[in-house]
Each structure stands twice: as structure tokens, then as C-alpha cells.
């Protein structure tokens, strides 16, 4: 114990329990996360590069990846626009029921995804409340890629609001007063003063919503229709391959998605670091 202390600690501390706490953390992390995750890479490595490439470039896989990333991008963009609007309204204006609405923004975090999935499907199906209004106009939502985008917008909704709202609340009024004194109108002040200040938070929220949407399964499978090549998302294709005992195929797609998730996680960390430095400079 004392040897791990001197070996690892870069600063002496009088507090006990370092070896136990770090040891338990590493053991638990390895058993639950690291060793199981490495299994996917080991399994993919047994495939060899050529067959790996063959699996992930198969038309059905490419179509599912394109759909997953395309729909996630549209949903995250919608969330960026409306999330900024909701955050602005909650941070700046007073209206009746604001506290309640503020609390409900987190509903997509709290509501199990399967529940969201069947509720959205019931709403947007041809005989549903919203679907019956849209279908006569020739707009089919449920069982099409549009439905997938609707579900992904629902589950990504809180991310942008929750990252942008605190920044808007902390933004000093003096900045906007100065802009007004210098002759800017409200739109110019928003574009040149407010928007640059919230940009890192907005991007972080966008990236978080995007990352969540890419991996989402529960809320999508009900509304998607799940037609191969048309409305089959990548996570569903992994499950389909598993059910056919095609473990190698499932793992190959999983590895592609994991690598993209790592890249996104890295990007989010860089964005948060950037946003944090911005805030530190301001104070």
C-alpha cells in the first residue's frame, strides 16, 4: 500500500485510503467496463482487416450508418435551434408556469426510451393525433426516416437547453448595455455579443445531443418501421446480426460506432475545456 502511494502520488497527502479507493476504482472499472469493451476489439481483430472492411462497407451496413448519422445530425440541429430558443426564454423572460416548464425540460432524461417510443408512434401513426393531420397532406412520419428524426429530437432535447441556459443566466447585462450604448440594435447585440458568448456551450450541447442520438435505440425502434436499407438504424442492425448469431458482423459495426463515439467524447471534452477557459477569462 505504502509503495503504491509513493509510486503514484505526485503530492504527499495526510489523508488515508488512497490505495483502497484507487484500487477499488480501477478493479471495478476494469471488470465492468474496460475488459468487456476490449472484448469487442479483440473479436474484431480476429476478423482480419479485409473481412472487417467487407462487413462495414456492405450496402445494408452503409445505409444504416448513413441513416443513423444523417437523422442524428438533423435532430441535433433542430435541438440546437429550439434548445437555444427555450434556454433564452427560460433565462430571460418571466411567464406563468415557468418553474414547471423548466423542470419538464428534463423529461426525456427521466422517461424510459421505450415509453417515449410507443407514445411518439401512437401520435404520429396514420390514425394518431398528429399523424391523422399530416397524412392527408402527404406527409408520412411514423415508419419513415422522418419518424426516426422526431424520436431523436425528443431524446436530445434537454442537452442544448441545459448547457446554454446557465451561460445565458450568467451573461452580464453590462455587455449588452455597452452594445446598446454604442448604437447596436437588439438583433445586432444578439448576433455580435450574446451568440459568440454562448457559442461554446451551444456547440457542446449540440455534440452531446448528437452523440446521444447516434447510439439511441429504444425510442427509435418503435417509430422507425425498421426496413433494411430505408429505415434501419445501426444499433438495430447490431441486434439483428446478433440474433442471427453473426457475432463477428455485429462486433464490426459496434467497433465502427465505438470509434466514432470516442472521437465525439474527445471533441466534447475539448469543447468543454474551451468553454471553461472562456468563462475563466471573463471572470
Amino acid at each position: 500500500m505504502s509503495s503504491t502511494r509513493t509510486l503514484l502520488l505526485s503530492r504527499h497527502s495526510v489523508l488515508p485510503g488512497f490505495g483502497l479507493a484507487l484500487g477499488y476504482t480501477l478493479l471495478y472499472l476494469s471488470l465492468i467496463v474496460l475488459i468487456p469493451l476490449s472484448a469487442t476489439f479483440v473479436k474484431a481483430a480476429t476478423l482480419g482487416w479485409e473481412s472487417f472492411w467487407q462487413i462495414v462497407t456492405a450496402p445494408r451496413v452503409v445505409a444504416s450508418l448513413r441513416l443513423t448519422f444523417g437523422a442524428s445530425l438533423v435532430a441535433a440541429t433542430l435541438n440546437a435551434v429550439f434548445g437555444l430558443l427555450v434556454a433564452w426564454v427560460l433565462a430571460r423572460y418571466e411567464f406563468c408556469g415557468k418553474k414547471l416548464i423548466d423542470a419538464f425540460v428534463d423529461l426525456p432524461f427521466a422517461l424510459p426510451t421505450a415509453v417515449a417510443g410507443i407514445a411518439l408512434t401512437a401520435l404520429y401513426a396514420g390514425n394518431g393525433l398528429i399523424g391523422s393531420l399530416l397524412e392527408p397532406q402527404g406527409i408520412k412520419v411514423a415508419f419513415t426516416p422522418i419518424g426516426i428524426t422526431v424520436a431523436l429530437t425528443f431524446i436530445g432535447l434537454p442537452f442544448v437547453v441545459r448547457t446554454v441556459q446557465p451561460v445565458l443566466e450568467d451573461l452580464e447585462a453590462e455587455l449588452e448595455e455597452a452594445a446598446a450604448c454604442l448604437g447596436a440594435n437588439r438583433l445586432q447585440t444578439f448576433g455580435r455579443v450574446v451568440l459568440p458568448a454562448v457559442a461554446p456551450a451551444l456547440l457542446t450541447g449540440f455534440a452531446l445531443a448528437f452523440a446521444r442520438a447516434v447510439g439511441e435505440y429504444g425510442s427509435v425502434v418503435f417509430i422507425a418501421g425498421n426496413m433494411p436499407m430505408v429505415s434501419e438504424i445501426a444499433p438495430l442492425l447490431i441486434i439483428t446480426k446478433l440474433e442471427q448469431y453473426d457475432y463477428a458482423g455485429a462486433t464490426a459495426i459496434a467497433v465502427v460506432m465505438l470509434i466514432i463515439a470516442f472521437v465525439l467524447l474527445l471533441a466534447i471534452n475539448v469543447l468543454q475545456w474551451w468553454a471553461g477557459r472562456r468563462n475563466a477569462e471573463d471572470n
Binding site: L37, A39, T40, G215, Y217, P235, M257, L258, L264
Partner: peptide, 15 residues
Amino acid sequence: CAGSPVIAGLIYVLI
């Protein structure tokens, strides 16, 4: 939390 929940299931099936 970064990957898909489906992958969380997959890794335990692989092991």
C-alpha cells in the same frame, strides 16, 4: 455513456 446502449449488451454476450 459515450457508446450505444446496444453495445453494452453486446459486450456481455461476447464474453
